[in-house]
Nucleic acid binder design. Structure first.
Lengths: 141, 141
DNA sequence: TCAACTGTAACTGTTATTATTACAGTAATC
DNA sequence: GATTACTGTAATAATAACAGTTACAGTTGA
């Protein structure tokens, strides 16, 4: 899995956890354990997909633009990791005169499309709000 | 996804397609479009997991040791790609004093375990025999 | 006008992936 | 029993993907 997906989910959960719903790229980066530039890149994408609002300039940062309970991991997945299951490496060669070698690429592709849908469906069942609940439940235990 | 998984599936389908059910690492490599050493490494693993039999020496090669209809992609997945969904890159830091940063790693891990099971279940529904059928259906069309 | 932010691009370092080379071991065939 | 055609495995090299860093232009609040 794309690690940007993880950064995105983590960031959204963090924002959902903040009383004022805001955080800067540096705060998020510290919490996630990466660098601010990477966070900004991911957040920029989340902004374009309507997950967060940005405020540039002094005192700026990121803020959730939807309810945590209304954002599923599937939404995030579609925004920045869709199709990541299929490997870049592709088997077979369409020019091959063997039935198997020439068509395997296409069949394999179909298999991974199905797998991707399956995965997306699973992510559909988990919201950012639920992620936060799991975290608080874990802290109390 | 692990590209060894793809090589394994392709190899098994190719063996299933051969009238005598046999092929050498070089023949497989040509069909898959990779090098024989890589194929041997994957096949070696398939042998250890009971998918194929090996015959060393002149005229040797690999042979299916089970019916194509009895081998699911889930079997192959478990043998050489299980848990590949979760990224190596891990977010958060258990030592953090923030609720989110300190526990996110664990929660994320649980999410990916679930995703992995989901994926495995999907692969359970596809056999090597079916892959071959899809290929022949495609050729006729 | 300054300080504190975001948005990007360019570059560097690190890690993972794939291909290659080499060689020991095994079995069929002459 | 030598030769040929294979597998098994280790070591190395080449390539590609990934993550971190630096730099700087643009925006906004104080």
């Amino acid at each position: 899995m794309n690690s940007e997906f993880i950064i995105a989910v983590h960031s959204l959960v963090l924002l959902a956890h903040r009383p004022d719903g805001m955080a800067s790229s540096e705060e998020i980066a510290t919490n996630v354990c990466t660098n601010p530039v990477r966070v900004r890149k991911v957040m920029s994408c989340l902004r374009k997909n309507g997950f967060v609002d940005t405020r540039e300039g002094s005192g700026g940062g990121y803020k959730l633009s939807r309810e945590p309970g209304d954002m599923t991991l599937a939404d995030v997945y579609r925004a920045l990791a869709a199709g990541s299951l299929a490997p870049k490496w592709c088997s077979g060669d369409p020019e091959s005169d063997c039935l198997v070698g020439s068509n395997m690429g296409e069949v394999m592709n179909a298999v991974f499309c199905g797998a991707d849908q399956q995965l997306e469906q699973y992510f559909e069942s988990i919201t950012i709000g639920q992620m936060l609940s799991r975290l608080t439940a874990m802290a109390k235990a």
